[in-house]
Structure formats: structure tokens, C-alpha cells
Design a protein around this nucleic acid. Structure first.
Length: 809
RNA sequence: GCCGCCGUGGUGAAAUGGCAUACACGACAGACUUAAGAUCUGUUGCUCGCAAGAGCGUGUCGGUUCGAGUCCGACCGGCGGCACCA
């Protein structure tokens, strides 16, 4: 077997020379720019996962292939190193998270280099580096200045045992991930980013992106735009009104009561008039402490309580209707109040049945009335019980009803503002100072970064604040405005913050004056190929687009969108077809694969498994096929090299058929790389190698060189080795991509299929350009055709030039 | 429940509406070997047939078409996302 260890180590050493200068990109190169980006990893203690290898191999193929096409390629890598796992690990091991991160980064970098990825390491970044997070904080200040960051009381997950706030990611089935205790909901003062201000643009600009439709669809659903109307219900004996949002204004005549969310303001405002105060406040109290799980359990059986003593007027029927409070109405969506139309809304129907409230049909599927409804009818139909609108199609009645009751058209979004505070140590400090006199004061930009102080104890304090709150020396500062005593904000940013803009820092990683130089930003942006897992389809990719648009509005960046093209790698499942996980014990360690088969074989295997974007199971024996393939190519190249050294060796020539196959393969691989179809590109190379092996040492050096070039993006070590065996000294990175001869990719003769009634019966070898008449003549003279035809006459003859002739009897 | 994607050999998978199963794994047989491993060669969807060949076959049922794995409709199964969003 070929000495993969020796070959791979040799080339990795050469590539590392001069700080990996070979792959260093600058803005002066002539070729067209190409920004190839990976989703940078969180450097966990477990090290690289086969899933990382998959995405990073794909982007490395694109990078190397693009370089050979003469493009100026930027292919950087860095570390998304803030976040809970490092902090939790540090707490457990009584060490500082910074040390944990440093160690993990070293390990990750080593692993990535061992796989031969062609990164520009001179642009390496780390989100926990103060010179990096200085600009993360700077962006926060810009958001604050634009009114896009604000403080609000919002509910958070609270673990009563660990006495700390948990991120959503840490809550599994309503329990704390670490201690297993049930999580409570608490309201805390938090920083919130107004992503909803960009909802429309985030939705509409999706159209200009070359992204998987699945990801676009997930973002559309997440943003959740819905067009409807706002309608007011006057409160009896009061000048107050209840505003309601609905997408089905046509059903207003059937609104038999209204429902308020438990947190609705009106409940407090009308408190004095509520007859059953105790029952109401008890219900609200219970609802407040309900966990997500309980809410979901209640989704079928509705709960609620009537506000006795309060009535409102349905503006269409002018009838007095009651008011209920129920937690099936969400405080954060629309107006926090709905009109209940039991006949035409499943949730209202369930609620009405539970409490014996009236159901009035106003849209009928067949125009006839149905006094007894077994379930809500949510489809389209004709208006009934709607006075002057009777017999009108409901979609026409909709707009007219909105108009007649003085409603306003409105658009609502499911998207919520982004809760941005974390009560944790290991994150970027939020650069804000709280002064009793001046209120919230931003840290002046020239005082950035606000450094994360070194502390002895970074465990959660037990109060609803970050461990930073315990460091008096750090917390107590002078107010930048009035110079009086003030305190620092002690919350930190979530892990998403650093990854929201890292692709910009790669463009100019050492700039001390700005986040990135304008000319450099203009040159490189947008990202031309972004590869990563679908798990970031909404969170990271939506947050980053939001920040980018804010920076665009500020003139900091020149493109509306950061990532022009996105590709998702599919999940690599364990050999058992299940998601890889430590607890299942089905995790494949890429290091062991590299040891046994080499980086090239691992890269090749992961690309050969199937389409990049598909989920696919790891087959323990699968990699050997790729290892054999590489071994065979090495044997072939070594044989040709040896034959060339012999004196008086006959000049080698490539057989005509092999030459044609070679040109076809160049074409196929070129097309497949362009479309990210690496699995079929590899199979094309296998077919070519199978054919070349027939000539073995008789092959001309040029054919081995072309093969090496085609293989280089996929398996760079062996390809470079073979290239060198042919007597070359240059790195293949600087060589140009092979060009195919169009004429040689097309055969002059083809096997024309002869079908009878669409069934294949025979084939005949003819010129590709054979005209229909001649083909028909030949086909009808064919022995097999005669047998089938007998004395019948063909009813019809279909001729597809160069492909087939189909005789219909 | 809603939205989206996917169902092809023993396995991973190929196939601009035109030869279904390329390529690879595995299995079986053979060569080499004292042997094992490695390597090389061959066979490998099902049924019938000595053979030539025929019939069947891409989750199920139906449709469009000269021709359907591919397009359309209904259903069954799996995966992913969202989930009381009015």
C-alpha cells in the first residue's frame, strides 16, 4: 500500500512554510475574486468531528479548484470561542475558560492542518481576542445609537438549583441540562435587539440569494409575515377599546366573545370593575409560571376564565359580548387579544366547547346553514348570518367588513426581537455604563474594548446577574458623561454575537482603526460560497443578515446581503443510521481515519458518500474503496515515473479511446465541481483510472499529470506527489485547470437504440448525425424489428437524433 | 396539526422524460501465497429457459406520454423544521 503517512507529512510541512504563504490572499492579484467561507467551528474539547471534515473538504475543493482556474481565492478560518461549553468545562475542571479555549484551538488547528485544508492562516481570527471583540462591542454601540438595542423586562429560563439563568439551548424538556431540575420562568431586565425592524427586508431580500430553497423557506416561516386587519371592540361603559388582530375579518359577524392574553394591559386597567378578581388573578398567576411543556399539553384542552362584569361590543353585530382571559392567546403577538370565532377557528372552537360558549356559523361551504357544527370550518365559502353580506364569497366580504367597521389593514410577524443578554462570564461584555444621574450611557468608542476582567471565580453568583457583578473594581466606574459614580453593565453577549460579523474581520484581521478597511471590504464582499450545516438555517444566518443590513445602512459595508451563495452539508449519521452522539457510542473519530487511511482517503470518502447536502450514514468499510483507488493511482504514477527513467524506453502513447475518455472526464469533473457534485466527479475519475490502468507504465507522463490536476482539489497530498513524480517542482496550486477538447468529448458514432412500443429490442452502431430517413430504413431492415413487426405496419415512428428510434405498432 | 424534503440491488448510491442499478462497499468464485492478509481477474436485481431470449422490476394505486425512477393526482412510510402566531 502507498505510504500515505510519509507523503502527507512531507507536503504538509512544505505547505506550512512562511506562515502558509502559498495560500495567502491579497487584493492585488489579477484574477476574479472568490470568497470561500466555512462556518467557523466552536473549538470544543472533543476535537474535530467527521461533520466538520465534510463541510471543510467541500469548501477546500472549491478553493483549490478556483485557484487553478485563475481566481483570487480568499479561504480563511477562525474560532468561535465564546460560549457556555468552555465556561462549564472550566468550572468543572477549576480552570480558566481562556486556557481551555487556547488548548482546544491548538488541537483544532493541528487537526485541520493534518487534513490539508488550504486556509490563509495569516488571517486566523478568534472571537475571544480583545482586538476582535472590540469591534463586536463597537457594532453593539452602533445598534444602540440607531435605537436598535433597548432594555426590557422579558421572561427567561431560571434554574432554581444552579441559581442561574439558562440559555434556551441549555434547557432540555423543561429541565436544566446540568442538574436536571425543572426550569422556572422569570422576568428579568434584558438587552434586546430590534431585529423586527428589519423583518420586511430580511424576508424580501431572500429572493436575491442563491441559497437552498429549504433554508429560505425556514427563514420565511421563522419571520412569519401575515397580512390581516386590526379591529377595535369598544368596552361597555368606558372609553377604552380592545384592539384585535385577525386575518379572517370576514368571520367578524361570528365573533361571540373576545380573548385577552394573561399579560394584557386591559386587565389591570379594568381591574376595579372585574367582579371575579380573585379567580382572574389566580388564573393569570398560574399561566405565568407555566412551562413550555405545560402550555403544549394544554394546547388541546383549553383553559381560561371570564372577566365577569366586563362586556365589549362587536362592531359588526353591535351586540354585547363577554371577555375572557386565556393563555392560548399570546401576549407577544399581534395586539395580545383575539376575537373568538368558534365556528371558524379550531382553537376558539375548542375553547368555546370547553366553556359552553355560543358558536355562530358565518361562512358556509355550500351556502346552506349548519346549526350543529362538529368542528370548526376554516375553509372558504359563502357568507351566512351576516346581514347584507349574506351569499357573498367570504374572501370578498373580508375587505368590505374591515372597511365597514373602521378597521385598519395590518401586517404582523412571528419574528420576535432578539434577547441579547446572558448572565454569564465567558462572553463579550456589553459596553454600557449605568449612571444614577444620566441613565444608560454607552462606553465611548475610544475606550473599547471593554475587557473581560480576569477573575478568580466565574461561577454564576446565584443572583440574576453575571459573575462580573461580583468584581467591584471592574463594576464601579466613572460615568463618561457626568463623571459621577456609575456601574458597568455586567451582562455579556450571547454566542451569536461574534459569529454575526466574523466574515468581515477576515478581510482585514489586523486593522486597529476599523472593523475592516473599506476598499478591502468592497473588493471581497459578498461571500461567494458559504458552506455549513443546516442547523444554522435560522439563528446564525438570520442574525448575521440582520447585523449586515444595519452595517449596510450605516455605510460600513457595501452589499445588502453578506452570503450570496449558501450550501448545506448534510448530517453524517452513525453506522447505525442514527445521529452520532457520545451516548449512543456511534461517533466516528476522524483522527483515527487519518492515521489508518490518510487525509486524502478520508476527504475522498466523505465526498464520495453521496450528495453533499444529503444526510448519509457512515459505512465502516466504505473508506477502503477510496483508499484502494488512491493506492492504484500511486502505483500507476510510480510505474510511469520508473519507465521514464529507463534509457531507450519506447515513447509512450495514450490509446485513442483512453484519450477520449480523458477529455470526457475533464469535462465531467469540471461540470461537477461547478455544481458541488463531488460524488459523481470522483466516480468519473475512478472510471478513467480503471481505463488508464490497462496501459499502466506505457502511459505518457502528460496523462498522469492531467489526472493529478483533476485529483488535486479532492486529494491534494497524493496529487502533488504524483505531479512531483512526473518531474515537476511547482505546487499544483499554481497550475492551471485542464481544458477539454470539445471534439474529443463527443463520439462520432453512437449506439442508436431500437425500441418497439417504447421497449428496447436492439441497438445499432451508426453515425451520430444519421438523418431520420436513413435510421428508419436501417431500423425497419433490422431482423429483430421484422420479427416483431410481422406483416403489421408501423403506426408511428419516433426518432430522437443520435439517441433512439421508437417504432409504434 | 402546519410547512418542506425523501422512498431505486444485500449496503452507500448513479441516471438533460429515452439502455434502470454507473461508481464503490459487501458477498461468491478463481489466480498468487505453505497459509493468512494485501493485490489482481471474474460473477453478482428477480422469475422462466440448455441457450438465444422472454417476462417482471425504482414505496402503493391511478393519470399524462410513442416512452415515466424522473411530470401530474391520491395514498402509505421515513426524515427535517415550526408548533395555540388568531
Amino acid at each position: 500500500m502507498y505510504p500515505h503517512k510519509k507523503i502527507e507529512t512531507k507536503w504538509q510541512k512544505k505547505w506550512a512554510a512562511n506562515s502558509f504563504e502559498l495560500w495567502h490572499a491579497d487584493e492585488k492579484s489579477r484574477g476574479e475574486k472568490m470568497y470561500v467561507l466555512d462556518m467557523f467551528p466552536y473549538p470544543s474539547g472533543e476535537g474535530l468531528h467527521v461533520g466538520h471534515v465534510e463541510g471543510y473538504t467541500a469548501s477546500d475543493i472549491i478553493s483549490r479548484y478556483s485557484r487553478m482556474q485563475g481566481k483570487n481565492v480568499l479561504h480563511p478560518m477562525g474560532w468561535d470561542a465564546f460560549g457556555l461549553p468552555a465556561e462549564n468545562f472550566a468550572i468543572k475542571k477549576k480552570t480558566h475558560p481562556r486556557l481551555v479555549v487556547e488548548k482546544n484551538v491548538r488541537n483544532f488547528a493541528k487537526q485541520l492542518r493534518r487534513l490539508g485544508f488550504s486556509y490563509d492562516w495569516q488571517r486566523e481570527i478568534n472571537t475571544t481576542d480583545p482586538e476582535y471583540y472590540r469591534w463586536t462591542q463597537w457594532i453593539f454601540l452602533q445598534l444602540l445609537k440607531q435605537g436598535l438595542a433597548y432594555e426590557a423586562e422579558v421572561p427567561v429560563n431560571w434554574c432554581p438549583s444552579d441559581k442561574t439563568v439558562l440559555a434556551n439551548e441549555e434547557v432540555i424538556d423543561d429541565r436544566c441540562e446540568r442538574c436536571g431540575n425543572l426550569v422556572e420562568r422569570r422576568k428579568l431586565n434584558q438587552w434586546v435587539l430590534k431585529i423586527t425592524a428589519y423583518a420586511d427586508r430580511l424576508l424580501e431580500d431572500l429572493d436575491m440569494l442563491d441559497w437552498p430553497s429549504k433554508v429560505k423557506e425556514m427563514q420565511r416561516n421563522w419571520i412569519g409575515r401575515s397580512e390581516g386587519a386590526e379591529i377595535e371592540f369598544p368596552v361597555m361603559d368606558s372609553n377604552l377599546k380592545v384592539k384585535v388582530f385577525t386575518t379572517r375579518a370576514d368571520t367578524l359577524p361570528g365573533a361571540t366573545y373576545i380573548v385577552l392574553a394573561p399579560e394584557h394591559d386591559l386587565i389591570t386597567l379594568l381591574n376595579a370593575r372585574i367582579v371575579n378578581k380573585n379567580a382572574v388573578s389566580e388564573y393569570i398567576d398560574r399561566a405565568k409560571h407555566k412551562s413550555d411543556r405545560e402550555r403544549i399539553a394544554d394546547a388541546k384542552a383549553k383553559t381560561g376564565v371570564e372577566l365577569k362584569g366586563i362586556m365589549v361590543i362587536n362592531p359588526f353585530t353591535k351586540k354585547e359580548i363577554p371577555v375572557w382571559v386565556s393563555d392560548y392567546v399570546l401576549g407577544g403577538y399581534g395586539t395580545g387579544a383575539v376575537m373568538a370565532v368558534p365556528a371558524h377557528d379550531e382553537r376558539d372552537f375548542a375553547h368555546a366547547k370547553e366553556f359552553g360558549l355560543p358558536v355562530v356559523e358565518v361562512v358556509s361551504p355550500d351556502g346552506k346553514p349548519h346549526p350543529e357544527m362538529a368542528e370548526a370550518f376554516t375553509g372558504d365559502g359563502v357568507m351566512v348570518n351576516a346581514g347584507e353580506y349574506d351569499n357573498l364569497p367570504n374572501h370578498i366580504a373580508k375587505d368590505r367588513i374591515v372597511e365597514c367597521v373602521g378597521g385598519k389593514k395590518r401586517t404582523n410577524y412571528k419574528l420576535r426581537d432578539w434577547i441579547f443578554s446572558r448572565q454569564r462570564y465567558w462572553g463579550e461584555p456589553i459596553p454600557v455604563i449605568k449612571c444614577a444621574k444620566c441613565g444608560t450611557v454607552p462606553v465611548p468608542e475610544d475606550q473599547l474594548p471593554v475587557l473581560l476582567p480576569r477573575v478568580k471565580n466565574y461561577e454564576p453568583t446565584g443572583e440574576a446577574e453575571s459573575p462580573l457583578a461580583g468584581i467591584r473594581k471592574w463594576v464601579n466606574v466613572e460615568c463618561p458623561t457626568c463623571k459621577g459614580p456609575a456601574k458597568r453593565e455586567t451582562n455579556t453577549m450571547p454566542q451569536w454575537a461574534g459569529s454575526c460579523w466574523y466574515y468581515l474581520r477576515y478581510l482585514d484581521p489586523h486593522n486597529a482603526e476599523a472593523l475592516a478597511d473599506k476598499a478591502k471590504e468592497k473588493y471581497w464582499m459578498p461571500v461567494d460560497a458559504y458552506i455549513g450545516g443546516v442547523e444554522h438555517a435560522v439563528l446564525h444566518l438570520l442574525y448575521a443578515r440582520f447585523w449586515h443590513k444595519v452595517l449596510f445602512d450605516l455605510g460600513v459595508v457595501s452589499t445588502k446581503e453578506p452570503f450570496q451563495k449558501l450550501m448545506n452539508q448534510g448530517l453524517i449519521l452513525g453506522p447505525d443510521g442514527q445521529k452520532m452522539s457520545k451516548s449512543r457510542g456511534n461517533v466516528v473519530n476522524p483522527d483515527l481515519m487519518v492515521d489508518e487511511f490518510g487525509a486524502d482517503a478520508l476527504r475522498l470518502y466523505e465526498m464520495f458518500m453521496g450528495p453533499l447536502e444529503d444526510a448519509k450514514p457512515w459505512q465502516p468499510d466504505g473508506i477502503v474503496g477510496l483508499y484502494r483507488f488512491l493506492n492504484r493511482f500511486h502505483t500507476l504514477a510510480a510505474g510511469v515515473a520508473k519507465a521514464r527513467k529507463k534509457k531507450n524506453a519506447a515513447p509512450a502513447a495514450l490509446p485513442e479511446e483512453t484519450n477520449r475518455l480523458m477529455h470526457k472526464t475533464i469535462r465531467k469533473v469540471t461540470e461537477d465541481f461547478g455544481a458541488y457534485r463531488f460524488n459523481t466527479a470522483i466516480s468519473a475519475l475512478m472510471i478513467l483510472l480503471n481505463d488508464m490502468e490497462k496501459s499502466a507504465a506505457q502511459l505518457p507522463k502528460d496523462s498522469v499529470q492531467i489526472f493529478a490536476k483533476l485529483l488535486f482539489p479532492l486529494a491534494p497530498h497524493l496529487a502533488q506527489e504524483a505531479w512531483t513524480l512526473m518531474g515537476n517542482e511547482s505546487p499544483l496550486d499554481h497550475e492551471s485547470w485542464p481544458v477539454f477538447d470539445e471534439k474529443l468529448t463527443e463520439d462520432a458514432e453512437v449506439e442508436l437504440l431500437i425500441q418497439i412500443n417504447g421497449k428496447l429490442r436492439d441497438k445499432m452502431k451508426v453515425a451520430k448525425t444519421i438523418p431520420q430517413e436513413e435510421a428508419e430504413k436501417l431500423a425497419l431492415a433490422n431482423q429483430r424489428v421484422k420479427e416483431f413487426l410481422g406483416n403489421k405496419k408501423p403506426a408511428k415512428i419516433i426518432f430522437v437524433p443520435g439517441r433512439l428510434i421508437n417504432i409504434v405498432i
